[in-house]
Simulated assay, not measured.
Amino acid sequence: MSSKTPTTFYLIACSFLLFQAVLGADPLFHFCSSSSGNFTHSSPYEANLNKLTSFLYLKTPPSGFGLGSIGQYPDQAYGLALCRGDVSASNCKSCVADASSEIRKLCPLNKGAVIWYDNCLFKYFDEDFFGKIDTQNTFYMWNLNKVNNSVEFNQKTEEFLTQLTDEAYQTTKLYATGESELNKSTKLYGLVQCTRDLSSSDCKKCLDDAIGQLPSCCDGKQGGRVVSGSCNFRYEIYPFVNA
């Protein structure tokens, strides 16, 4: 995977999409890997992938993260699931169930695939990707509304997300949230998170690289996200993290 040319997808997050995502009705985005090839029905790889899916469904909810591999080369399946750090175990379980089911419908015979929901990420491949920063599978979302002073806002947003990154990569959950006062009437709310197969230093690198894409993603936007297969950030001018 790391040797392939990165492919980046761009999405506009309109209010309808955000509404659907909050309800958990639709995924934010998905990616079916063409480079990994396909498997056939009733093949050893499909059997291993089915076992892996069941394993991650049980493994992920208690801690919010699950990682595992099933089988032997060349039919070994590797996968992980990550729930957002503020999501309850029951909502995490529901999201992983939805994600693992939906991705098999969207990418029925692909050996590799990734799907993102607002509350979770589900990812599997036929090669070992654990501990490697995934920048191939990346997409952007942003609020359609713009701020008045984009230069100042962009600077404060970058500083704020960098501060959250410095907190997140030093925690076991590789996750941090916070808020920052922009002015007397407006606050900035943020979240950063990495998949827990990454080292602390790679988590920081992944998030730093994502924050570096702010000008391309969210220049002067009231809210935005850069989401990859290894890390993501989100910021808004309204609270969105569960208490």
Rank of each mutant, 00 (worst) to 15 (best):
M1K: 13
T40C: 03
F233A: 01
Y45D: 07
L174C: 02
G131V: 10
A168Q: 03
Y73T: 13
T7K: 14
H41L: 13
F153N: 02
A168C: 01
N48S: 11
P215S: 06
G64Y: 00
N145C: 06
I12N: 14
A81I: 08
K59V: 02
E102A: 13
L80A: 06
F29M: 13
E158F: 08
I103Q: 04
E179T: 13
G224C: 07
F122Q: 06
A113T: 09
W116H: 09
S230N: 09
Q222I: 04
N91M: 06
G229S: 02
E159N: 14
F39D: 03
K184F: 13
S15D: 14
F29H: 15
A77G: 04
Y238M: 01
G71Y: 03
N137Y: 05
E46T: 12
W142A: 10
L58F: 12
I211H: 03
Y175T: 01
L23S: 11
N50P: 03
F122A: 08
F160V: 07
Y238I: 03
N154K: 09
Q170P: 02
S150V: 12
D26W: 06
F125S: 10
C14G: 15
S199T: 15
H41T: 15
Y117C: 05
T7H: 13
K59C: 09
F153K: 04
T135C: 02
L144A: 14
L164S: 05
Q213V: 10
V226Y: 04
Q163E: 14
Y238A: 07
K205E: 12
C194T: 01
F65T: 01
M1E: 10
A25F: 12
K123A: 10
K173G: 05
Q155K: 15
M141V: 08
A176N: 08
I211C: 04
N48L: 07
E236L: 09
F39T: 05
V147S: 03
K93F: 05
F31K: 08
C231K: 05
T5P: 09
C107F: 05
A99Q: 03
L121D: 04
K59P: 01
L161H: 00
N38K: 12
K4N: 12
Q155D: 10
Y45N: 07
T8G: 01
K221V: 01
K184V: 05
V22M: 06
W116R: 05
E159D: 15
D209R: 10
G37F: 06
